[in-house]
Design a protein around this nucleic acid. Structure first.
Lengths: 197, 197
DNA sequence: TAAAAGTCTTAAACTAGTTCATTTTTTTTC
DNA sequence: GAAAAAAAATGAACTAGTTTAAGACTTTTA
């Protein structure tokens, strides 16, 4: 059975946790929508109700909120083989607080809420897939929420660079500052200090 | 069908997401272990591999790490009807970084890793239960990890008090400071300031 | 390929939060 | 219920990170 390259990427991601028959693969693919986002344009904006959960097959995006002063706080960078979206708005159908903007022109596969619900009826083993996917994400967010309160900005930077070297090279220092939780000026100081060491 | 009071609590929690037959309820209960922890004693300590995931039927506990200076950072307070543990260590079977200590003498139901795995074989709809449970936790940890970098300590305190008033009254200011991510001294200042307003 | 827009660096003055030391208040323990 | 231990409050000196401003460098766009 032959699928498009992007479909192989998502099937491969799913196969980490569950095994699908060819028929199930076809069914699953039929529930997905192909989406392209140009560099610097929005996949979604705060105030909208999220229509999809996304799997990235190509590119790089940032997910962020704006605080009351209008400063951005980036909650994740999403690159190839990552899942992203606003799970809260997707589930509750309430307006999102998040913006998702393409750092590079990107290609994604989206699953709509209706198809997400349908998926569990049609192929119940996707409950298991999402149980595992959410479990893994939960573990990393628990760790991250602890890092936020227990490490200094410099330590958070060093950690990030060690854990995601491929991402560091694709984003600006300014965006990294908005992820770490500091100003771009202080980020600049940290980087020159760390490089001097 | 009649169950013990503590068993009704957990069955009621599970029924938020899935419906169980009486037989399935009995089976599920049979996979759980009853645990009691005295006030000020440990349910688990860093360095151990986590044996159970826990559901609290009575009491209050804190989950925390110690940083390299030996200062505590609390990642959650767990009270009645909450699930807790160290999911990472539970899944990977690697030693945990977390301590779990009873703030009040507490009663819990634990599920061992072996029984957790068995549960999905015996009652596959638990995949759905955990998919939903992890999804809800994930949503709140994503929010918390964003709060950590986008709000001031005072704002985080006000948020916490608004969201968990019942918990605030059961814990010390010192523990709340370790959760918010500040020193007890600064917590004291914030509280007196907020009360003056 | 020039101009415009955005990013990065540096520095000085500032503020949120820390550290350390002391006293008061509350809780625990025998 | 007295003594001991822990928690909370207060204040002064400090440090990590912010703000504002200006110039240099890099990328984007027409």
């Amino acid at each position: 059975m032959n699928f498009k390259e992007t479909h192989n990427l998502i099937l491969n991601n799913v196969s980490r946790f569950i095994h699908l028959t060819d028929l199930e693969k076809q069914k699953y693919i039929s529930l997905l929508t192909e989406i392209e986002v140009e560099k610097k344009t929005f996949l979604m904006q705060a105030g909208e109700v999220t229509k999809y959960e996304y799997f990235i097959t190509k590119g790089c995006l940032k997910v962020y909120t704006l605080d009351k002063e209008g400063s951005p706080h980036i909650s994740m960078f999403a690159v190839e083989d990552y899942w992203t979206g606003d799970l809260s708005s997707f589930m509750t159908k309430e307006p999102s607080m998040y913006f998702i903007k393409a750092i590079e022109t990107s290609e994604l596969l989206g699953i709509s809420r209706a198809n997400y619900d349908l998926l569990f009826q049609e192929i119940p083993k996707f409950e298991r897939f999402y149980r595992n996917l959410y479990q893994k994400s939960l573990i990393s967010y628990i760790r991250r929420s602890n890092y936020g309160i227990s490490l200094t900005a410099e330590e958070r930077y060093v950690e990030f660079k060690k854990k995601y070297p491929q991402i560091v090279s694709r984003i600006t220092q300014k965006d990294l500052a908005a992820y770490i939780g500091i100003t771009p000026e202080f980020m600049s100081k940290i980087i020159s200090k760390v490089n001097r060491m």
